[in-house]
Protein backbone atom coordinates (compact mmCIF):
# COMPACT_ATOMS: atom_id res chain seq x y z
CA UNK A 1 0.00 0.00 0.00
CA UNK A 2 3.00 2.27 -0.15
CA UNK A 3 2.23 4.78 -2.88
CA UNK A 4 5.89 5.47 -3.39
CA UNK A 5 6.26 1.98 -4.80
CA UNK A 6 4.07 2.97 -7.68
CA UNK A 7 6.77 5.29 -8.89
CA UNK A 8 8.75 2.40 -10.19
CA UNK A 9 6.01 1.03 -12.36
CA UNK A 10 6.67 2.57 -15.75
CA UNK A 11 3.23 2.99 -17.12
CA UNK A 12 3.81 4.61 -20.47
CA UNK A 13 0.21 5.54 -20.87
CA UNK A 14 0.06 7.30 -17.55
CA UNK A 15 -0.35 10.95 -18.46
CA UNK A 16 0.49 11.93 -14.96
CA UNK A 17 3.87 10.28 -15.09
CA UNK A 18 5.66 13.58 -15.41
CA UNK A 19 3.11 15.68 -13.66
CA UNK A 20 4.46 16.39 -10.30
CA UNK A 21 3.62 18.87 -7.69
CA UNK A 22 7.16 19.95 -7.42
CA UNK A 23 10.10 18.49 -9.31
CA UNK A 24 9.58 15.25 -7.53
CA UNK A 25 8.26 11.84 -8.44
CA UNK A 26 4.49 11.84 -8.86
CA UNK A 27 2.48 10.97 -5.84
CA UNK A 28 -0.83 10.89 -7.55
CA UNK A 29 -1.16 7.47 -9.02
CA UNK A 30 -3.49 6.53 -6.21
CA UNK A 31 -6.99 5.53 -7.15
CA UNK A 32 -9.49 8.31 -7.38
CA UNK A 33 -11.35 7.51 -4.21
CA UNK A 34 -11.21 5.12 -1.40
CA UNK A 35 -13.73 3.55 0.77
CA UNK A 36 -13.33 4.13 4.43
CA UNK A 37 -13.39 2.02 7.50
CA UNK A 38 -16.55 1.69 9.50
CA UNK A 39 -14.81 2.37 12.76
CA UNK A 40 -17.18 3.48 15.51
CA UNK A 41 -17.28 7.04 16.75
CA UNK A 42 -15.05 7.31 19.85
CA UNK A 43 -17.02 6.98 23.05
CA UNK A 44 -15.68 10.18 24.54
CA UNK A 45 -16.95 12.16 21.56
CA UNK A 46 -20.41 10.67 22.04
CA UNK A 47 -20.19 11.55 25.74
CA UNK A 48 -19.14 15.13 24.96
CA UNK A 49 -21.94 15.56 22.46
CA UNK A 50 -24.52 14.23 24.88
CA UNK A 51 -23.33 16.58 27.60
CA UNK A 52 -23.34 19.48 25.18
CA UNK A 53 -26.83 18.64 23.92
CA UNK A 54 -28.09 18.39 27.47
CA UNK A 55 -26.48 21.70 28.38
CA UNK A 56 -27.91 23.31 25.22
CA UNK A 57 -31.39 22.18 26.13
CA UNK A 58 -31.09 23.54 29.65
CA UNK A 59 -29.60 26.79 28.41
CA UNK A 60 -32.37 27.32 25.89
CA UNK A 61 -34.99 26.49 28.50
CA UNK A 62 -33.62 28.99 31.01
CA UNK A 63 -32.44 31.83 28.86
CA UNK A 64 -34.91 32.05 26.03
CA UNK A 65 -37.46 34.37 27.63
CA UNK A 66 -40.28 31.97 26.78
CA UNK A 67 -39.47 32.19 23.05
CA UNK A 68 -41.38 35.46 22.82
CA UNK A 69 -40.47 38.05 20.26
CA UNK A 70 -40.72 40.94 22.69
CA UNK A 71 -38.51 39.64 25.50
CA UNK A 72 -34.97 40.95 25.22
CA UNK A 73 -33.52 40.58 28.67
CA UNK A 74 -33.10 36.89 29.30
CA UNK A 75 -32.09 36.06 32.84
CA UNK A 76 -28.39 36.13 32.21
CA UNK A 77 -27.31 37.81 35.40
CA UNK A 78 -25.32 34.74 36.35
CA UNK A 79 -23.21 35.11 33.21
CA UNK A 80 -22.44 38.77 33.44
CA UNK A 81 -20.83 38.48 36.85
CA UNK A 82 -23.65 40.04 38.87
CA UNK A 83 -25.03 42.96 36.93
CA UNK A 84 -27.24 43.94 39.83
CA UNK A 85 -24.50 44.43 42.36
CA UNK A 86 -22.56 46.59 39.94
CA UNK A 87 -25.32 49.13 39.65
CA UNK A 88 -25.80 49.27 43.39
CA UNK A 89 -22.16 49.74 44.38
CA UNK A 90 -21.41 53.33 45.38
CA UNK A 91 -18.84 55.04 43.20
CA UNK A 92 -15.67 56.23 44.86
CA UNK A 93 -14.83 59.52 43.18
CA UNK A 94 -11.16 59.28 44.10
CA UNK A 95 -10.83 55.91 42.36
CA UNK A 96 -12.49 57.30 39.24
CA UNK A 97 -10.32 60.39 39.48
CA UNK A 98 -7.10 58.49 39.88
CA UNK A 99 -7.79 56.65 36.64
CA UNK A 100 -8.73 59.79 34.75
CA UNK A 101 -5.63 61.53 36.05
CA UNK A 102 -3.39 58.64 35.02
CA UNK A 103 -5.02 58.58 31.58
CA UNK A 104 -5.08 62.23 30.76
CA UNK A 105 -3.14 64.49 33.11
CA UNK A 106 0.18 62.88 33.99
CA UNK A 107 1.79 63.90 30.71
CA UNK A 108 2.00 67.55 31.81
CA UNK A 109 1.32 67.67 35.52
CA UNK A 110 3.37 64.52 36.23
CA UNK A 111 2.51 61.68 38.52
CA UNK A 112 3.86 63.68 41.46
CA UNK A 113 1.54 66.58 40.72
CA UNK A 114 4.56 68.87 40.66
CA UNK A 115 4.42 69.74 36.97
CA UNK A 116 7.62 70.78 35.18
CA UNK A 117 9.30 73.93 36.37
CA UNK A 118 8.83 76.80 33.92
CA UNK A 119 6.58 74.74 31.62
CA UNK A 120 3.69 73.08 33.41
CA UNK A 121 2.39 74.47 36.69
CA UNK A 122 2.25 72.27 39.80
CA UNK A 123 -0.97 71.08 41.40
CA UNK A 124 0.52 70.48 44.83
CA UNK A 125 -0.40 73.39 47.05
CA UNK A 126 -1.58 75.34 44.03
CA UNK A 127 -4.06 78.12 44.84
CA UNK A 128 -5.81 77.21 41.54
CA UNK A 129 -6.39 73.61 42.56
CA UNK A 130 -7.36 74.44 46.13
CA UNK A 131 -9.59 77.44 45.29
CA UNK A 132 -7.70 79.94 47.40
CA UNK A 133 -7.47 83.69 46.84
CA UNK A 134 -9.61 84.82 43.94
CA UNK A 135 -9.94 81.24 42.63
CA UNK A 136 -13.23 79.44 43.10
CA UNK A 137 -14.44 75.90 42.48
CA UNK A 138 -16.38 77.20 39.50
CA UNK A 139 -13.15 78.45 37.88
CA UNK A 140 -11.60 75.05 38.35
CA UNK A 141 -14.46 73.26 36.61
CA UNK A 142 -14.57 75.81 33.78
CA UNK A 143 -10.84 75.36 33.41
CA UNK A 144 -11.18 71.61 32.89
CA UNK A 145 -14.12 72.01 30.56
CA UNK A 146 -12.61 74.44 28.08
CA UNK A 147 -8.88 74.57 28.80
CA UNK A 148 -6.61 77.45 29.67
CA UNK A 149 -4.12 79.48 27.67
CA UNK A 150 -1.79 82.44 27.91
CA UNK A 151 0.28 83.76 30.81
CA UNK A 152 -0.77 82.72 34.31
CA UNK A 153 0.70 82.92 37.80
CA UNK A 154 0.80 79.82 40.00
CA UNK A 155 2.42 79.95 43.44
CA UNK A 156 4.05 83.25 42.43
CA UNK A 157 5.73 81.73 39.41
CA UNK A 158 4.83 82.79 35.85
CA UNK A 159 3.82 80.17 33.28
CA UNK A 160 2.81 80.63 29.65
CA UNK A 161 1.40 77.51 28.06
CA UNK A 162 -1.89 75.96 26.97
CA UNK A 163 -4.09 73.33 28.58
CA UNK A 164 -6.41 71.26 26.38
CA UNK A 165 -10.19 71.31 26.90
CA UNK A 166 -11.61 68.18 28.50
CA UNK A 167 -15.33 68.70 28.03
CA UNK A 168 -15.66 65.21 26.56
CA UNK A 169 -15.18 63.83 30.08
CA UNK A 170 -18.38 63.11 31.98
CA UNK A 171 -19.45 65.08 35.04
CA UNK A 172 -18.50 62.14 37.18
CA UNK A 173 -15.05 61.91 35.66
CA UNK A 174 -14.39 65.63 36.10
CA UNK A 175 -15.65 65.57 39.67
CA UNK A 176 -13.50 62.51 40.28
CA UNK A 177 -10.31 63.97 38.90
CA UNK A 178 -10.80 67.24 40.82
CA UNK A 179 -11.54 65.41 44.04
CA UNK A 180 -8.45 63.30 43.48
CA UNK A 181 -6.17 66.26 42.76
CA UNK A 182 -7.45 68.18 45.75
CA UNK A 183 -6.86 65.33 48.17
CA UNK A 184 -3.63 63.80 46.86
CA UNK A 185 0.01 64.72 47.57
CA UNK A 186 -0.91 66.40 50.85
CA UNK A 187 -3.49 68.69 49.31
CA UNK A 188 -6.48 69.08 51.57
CA UNK A 189 -9.20 70.63 49.45
CA UNK A 190 -12.83 69.56 49.70
CA UNK A 191 -14.33 67.04 47.25
CA UNK A 192 -16.27 68.25 44.19
CA UNK A 193 -19.54 66.48 43.35
CA UNK A 194 -20.73 65.49 39.88
CA UNK A 195 -23.85 67.61 40.43
CA UNK A 196 -21.71 70.70 40.92
CA UNK A 197 -19.82 69.96 37.71
CA UNK A 198 -23.11 69.49 35.89
CA UNK A 199 -24.37 72.82 37.24
CA UNK A 200 -21.27 74.71 36.09
CA UNK A 201 -21.29 72.94 32.74
CA UNK A 202 -24.91 73.93 32.21
CA UNK A 203 -24.34 77.53 33.19
CA UNK A 204 -21.24 78.02 31.04
CA UNK A 205 -21.99 78.89 27.43
CA UNK A 206 -20.11 76.53 25.07
CA UNK A 207 -16.94 78.08 23.65
CA UNK A 208 -14.26 77.08 21.20
CA UNK A 209 -11.41 79.15 22.65
CA UNK A 210 -9.65 78.25 25.88
CA UNK A 211 -9.95 80.59 28.86
CA UNK A 212 -7.34 83.17 29.74
CA UNK A 213 -6.47 84.12 33.30
CA UNK A 214 -8.01 87.55 33.00
CA UNK A 215 -11.26 86.13 31.67
CA UNK A 216 -11.53 83.75 34.62
CA UNK A 217 -10.63 86.49 37.09
CA UNK A 218 -13.58 88.50 35.82
CA UNK A 219 -15.99 85.72 36.83
CA UNK A 220 -17.09 85.93 40.48
CA UNK A 221 -15.77 83.27 42.82
CA UNK A 222 -18.14 80.47 43.66
CA UNK A 223 -17.59 77.55 46.00
CA UNK A 224 -19.20 74.14 46.02
CA UNK A 225 -21.78 74.59 48.77
CA UNK A 226 -21.70 72.33 51.76
CA UNK A 227 -17.96 72.23 51.84
CA UNK A 228 -17.17 75.87 51.23
CA UNK A 229 -17.53 77.08 54.79
CA UNK A 230 -16.47 73.91 56.47
CA UNK A 231 -13.55 72.24 54.66
CA UNK A 232 -13.27 68.54 55.44
CA UNK A 233 -9.91 66.96 56.07
CA UNK A 234 -8.54 64.90 53.17
CA UNK A 235 -9.84 61.39 52.97
CA UNK A 236 -6.76 59.24 53.00
Amino acid sequence: MNPLNDLNSSDALNPERDLVEINRPPLSVNPEKYGGFFRPIPLWLIAISMVLFFWAGLYLAYYSGGFKSNVYNAELVAWSGGGGSRAAAPIDLRVVGKKVFAQNCVVCHQETGLGIAGQYPPLVGSEWALSQGWHGDNHLVKNILYGLQGPIIVKNMPYNNAMAPWNQLTDQQIAGVLTYVRSEWGNNGSPISPEFVAKIRASTPPRTEAWTMSELQAIPRELYSGAATNPTPPAK
Partner: peptide, 18 residues
Protein backbone atom coordinates in the same frame (compact mmCIF):
# COMPACT_ATOMS: atom_id res chain seq x y z
CA UNK B 1 -26.52 46.22 24.24
CA UNK B 2 -28.88 44.61 26.75
CA UNK B 3 -28.16 45.19 30.41
CA UNK B 4 -27.93 41.51 31.22
CA UNK B 5 -24.95 41.26 28.88
CA UNK B 6 -23.09 44.48 29.59
CA UNK B 7 -23.57 47.88 31.19
CA UNK B 8 -20.69 49.47 29.37
CA UNK B 9 -22.65 51.06 26.51
CA UNK B 10 -24.94 52.88 28.92
CA UNK B 11 -22.08 53.72 31.29
CA UNK B 12 -20.37 55.39 28.34
CA UNK B 13 -23.47 57.58 27.92
CA UNK B 14 -24.12 56.19 24.43
CA UNK B 15 -27.74 55.64 25.36
CA UNK B 16 -30.15 55.59 28.24
CA UNK B 17 -31.69 52.19 27.52
CA UNK B 18 -30.87 49.08 25.48
Amino acid sequence: RQLDVTHSDIDRKWGTRP
